[in-house]
């Protein structure tokens, strides 16, 4: 099954009861995510094109013990920035757990919260062929610039470069 058809079939099956209509990720920042949005084949491209302000994308899993601290640290740093960058969290194994994700205090710090339900290997390749499945996997998306990828928390210098271009 292709990446796209995986998503389409998931949507047909009604798996994304929370925020299924909110496919676009280019909406403005949210105080806290009100919905869990599906992360489909087009979402990564949408994120990369939403270049009005910098974004930090965290790919997480529910069994990743390092992810909460990384999300906390990034959320704290981003809140202090005058650029108001968006924090986007993608929970790779989050489909079917939308209510739990929304109740999680770490995920609630995200401006946009996504659940992925499809072929994770394919998604990893689309995001970055060098991503070997580690989580958290953090992508810094500067406004109008190319992405930078990190296993775990990005170093302070990389975050500074994003927040103070």
């Amino acid at each position: 099954m292709s990446f796209r058809s995986s998503l389409e079939s998931a949507l047909r099956a009604g798996r994304f009861a929370f925020g299924a209509a909110l496919l676009s990720t280019s909406a403005g920042p949210l105080a806290a995510p009100a919905t869990v949005q599906p992360f489909g084949p087009q979402t990564w491209g949408d994120l990369q094109r939403a270049g009005a302000k910098p974004q930090v994308v965290v790919f997480s899993t529910t069994d990743c013990s390092h992810c909460p601290a990384v999300i906390d640290g990034l959320a704290t740093s981003l809140r202090k920035s005058a650029l108001k960058p968006r924090l986007v969290v993608v929970v790779m194994d989050g489909a079917g757990q939308e209510a739990e994700l929304l109740a999680d205090r770490h995920y609630r710090q995200a401006d946009a919260l996504h659940a992925f339900d499809g072929d994770a290997v394919n998604l990893r390749y689309r995001v970055n062929p060098d991503w070997r499945g580690l989580t958290p996997y953090v992508v810094l998306l500067p406004a109008g610039g190319g992405p930078r990828y990190f296993n775990g928390a990005p170093p302070a210098g990389a975050l500074r470069a994003l927040l103070h271009p």
């Binding site: 899993t61 990743c64 390092h66 990384v70 499945g133 580690l134 989580t135 958290p136 775990g152 928390a153």
Partner: peptide, 8 residues
Amino acid sequence: KLDACPHH
């Protein structure tokens, strides 16, 4: 050196 989960 890594503060992340390799799942591997």
